[in-house]
Amino acid sequence: MTSNAVIQMKNVGKSFGTFQALKGINLEVAKGERIVVCGPSGSGKSTMIRCINRLEKHDEGKIIIDGKELTDQVDDINAVRREVGMVFQSFNLFPHMTILKNLMLAQRLVRKTSKAEARDTAMQLLERVKIPEQADKYPIQLSGGQQQRVAIARTLCMKPKIILFDEPTSALDPEMINEVLEVMTDLARYGMTMICVTHEMGFARSVADRVIFMDAGEIVEEAEPKAFFSNPKNDRTKKFLSQILSH
């Protein structure tokens, strides 16, 4: 397993003051694997994936990304961040830049790509998320669903090996959720390693290789989607599923 695991978390713990957000998390993700993480709010799902690209620092255990351990060494963190993309719940596009500039900025500054090349990559990816015509607009002029697709394209510009999704559809109006899920499904089909925190159980069923259920900072249950939905083992999982599937 170790050989092809791109993410390894060993006994990872994280506290905010006296509140323990993560307790003894063990997780291995293989290359090309698609994982959906669910659980009640405050269960530590977001904290877990934020630790993977070190937006939060874990204070116990080890996290190894593509063979590099996450420590305080600045070079290593930036090297890891180049390989790990992240899509946020609130899109977090740069409001003062056009869509095209949003996609070009990190390529130019971090990857040091030429302007022309950065622009080509950006336009290709805008085609891929099906909004090339919005290239010269500002984020505020786009709908939520379009903004989130831009955010995904922006991440893809960096050619990451792994993409983390932190509730990418939670801030969207219902009619826009599908256009974002379609883009994510498309990514999954091309073999991207993905960890998605989401409550979109339809997406989990059709795309995920594994579903992880977290509660109170722990991984309570993990299973293939079929087994997870039809035959959950833990009582907390059952309760959670009955709550979110009943409506």
Binding site: N53, L55, N78, R81, R82, V84, G85, M86, F88, S90, N92, L93, F94, P95, L105, A106, L109, V110, A151, R154, T155, M158
Partner: peptide, 18 residues
């Protein structure tokens, strides 16, 4: 300045200075 915007920059690998 919205913290989320800066986090997005961090996640894309931008340095503190950038």
């Amino acid at each position: 300045v919205d913290r989320g915007i800066l986090e997005a920059g961090t996640a894309l690998g931008l340095s503190v200075r950038q």
